[in-house]
Structure formats: structure tokens, C-alpha cells
Amino acid sequence: MNTAAPPRFRARGNGPVCLIGVTHDEVIGRVRDQLAKRGEPHFLFDQDRFPRDFHLEYGRTASGRVRGSLITPRCRYDISSIRSAYVRMLGTPPPDSSLETPDRRENERFIALDHLTRLWDVPTIGLTKPSASNFSKPYQISRIATPNISVPATLVTSRPPSVRAWEKQWGDVSFKSISSERSICLRLSPPWRRRLGCIRLLPAQFQEYIKGLDIRVHVVGRQVHALGINTTFSDYRYSYRYTGTKAPMRPLTLPREVRDDLVRISRNLGFVLSGIDLRRTERGEYFCFEVNPLPGFSFYDEGPNYPIANAVCDLLTGRTHV
């Protein structure tokens, strides 16, 4: 139960594919478009309109299995008829925050849906198991190093002198959030160094700065989609904010052993689909920074036929499996 077995994913039957998320999410939109193009039956269970217009009912049957229905304004779908599901709920509260956040109804709503996707036996892409969380980044990176992929040396501390010593040891140092809250990964420059005293209140995560080519990888089942990103920013995602243009990206072919390790990392963390941030040094070493279980892949999914969205659809419809 606590040691996650690598997930298996094989769509079943010919029923509809269920998408759980919001209509304005570009990723959901792209997968939906591709399913429609292929003429595959599917429906969106709109997280924003649940439980106003969308409903659910589920429970345990006498045989101990979980059965129930998802009810949209147009149709009622028996869980057992669903071929596969892609769950991409946005605004996900962290599991432990439920007691503390003021909007309890919002949490009840989320938890009811989350429970269902954890309990049902529908082949599901998305964050469905508690073991699959990247709620704590240091926790996650301690589990992802492989023979061919390292992780940046990391220090979590609330002591400024330790950071100074760490900087002496590693030269350039960057820092970013510890939790799954989005933050910009920044270099520890003089203005930030002057503010180091703040960490006495709250620890921070410092990492050796790895120079090299940024690579964004999406693992979809056993497929690896890699893009090299040319940027001078320590966090390429924010290049657009500062320059008005997206950092140029180009498809890359990674060595076979690295690809195999990436699939292994993703599966060992319990993910069928993941977004992985890598950097390749001039010496050809690979470093992994983070594995995202809910990748917003539409940002990277360029080129003819949207290869990532199509690979996701292949899994959802049963053309491929893991």
C-alpha cells in the first residue's frame, strides 16, 4: 500500500474516455480536441461545475469493489463503462491543508472527486495515489537519482552560515521552493545573499547550480518526448515574462540508457504521465531537478499533430499501454 508498485495502464473496452478537469485548461482542451478528431467517445467532468451541474455517486458493493456513476447534464456514466480517465484537477489543495483552509466546501468538493479517482479501478492518468505526490521537492529528489541521471547536490537549512559554506563548496548556488507551490528558481546573487537572514524563520532549499542545456522531458507511458531549450535564464519558464518571447525549443534524442532511466523514474514515482526537468552539462552528464505529475504540456507540445497530446490519447484509447 505504501510502497507504490509501478503503475500499469491499459484502457479497457470501447466505452467513453473520461476527462476530469476544467474547460479553460489548455491541456485538457488539446486532449479533448485530439479525441474528437479521432472520433473517440469521451466526456468532460467539469470540476468547476461540480457539484452544481455535475454529480457523482459511488460506494462499495457487496463484493468489496467501488462502483458508481458520474453524472453530467447530458448523461449518466457508469464507472464500469469508462474506458480510461485523465484527471487534471486544478487548484488542488495539498492533502494536509484540508483542516486549515477556510473554504471547506471547496475542499469537500475536491476530496470527493479525488477519493473516487483513488479508489476506482478505471485506468487513470493523473495524480491518483498518495504515493505519487511531489508535495515536497527534497523528498522527491532523494528518490530519483539513477546510475545515468544525478540530482543536484541539495541543502535544506535555516542557517545562513551553512548556506555561505555551501556556496564556497559548490561555487554557484540556486534556490527554489521546497513545496509544490510554484516558484522561480533563482541564482543566489548579492541582493539575495543580503536577505539570507530570512531563512531563520523558514528553511529554504539550496542547490548547486548546474551549467548546461535545459531539457524538458515528457514521459507518456514508455514514450519519452525531449526538448532542448536554449535560454540564459536560471528558470527557462520565465523567459517569456522577461523577454516577451518563449525560449527556443527543439526536439532532442536522448541516449537510450537515459531514456530508460527517465521511464523508470517516472514509473517508480507512480506516474503514467510526467514532466521532467533535466539539464545536460558540457561533459554529457544528466541532472534531474524535478518530476511534475501534472505537467502543463501544451506549452511544449509543438510541431505537427501535437505529439505529446497524441501520445496521451494513444494511452487513453488503448492504442498503447504500459
Partner: peptide
């Protein structure tokens, strides 16, 4: 909220990695 998330994640990382602990945290609990 950010500070609360960070404090929680740091504690989780520390306790989950600690070698001698009763009731080791799970990634999401």
C-alpha cells in the same frame, strides 16, 4: 499560504528521511 506550504514540505522531507522515527510520514500525509 506559501510560508505554510513551505514549512509543511520541509518538515515532511526531514521526517520522511529520518532514520529513527515512529510513524514515518507518507508523501501526502
Amino acid at each position: 499560504h506559501y510560508a505554510w506550504m513551505e514549512a509543511q514540505a520541509a518538515l515532511l522531507a526531514f521526517l520522511a528521511a529520518h532514520p529513527r522515527i515512529i510513524n514515518r510520514p507518507k508523501p501526502a500525509d
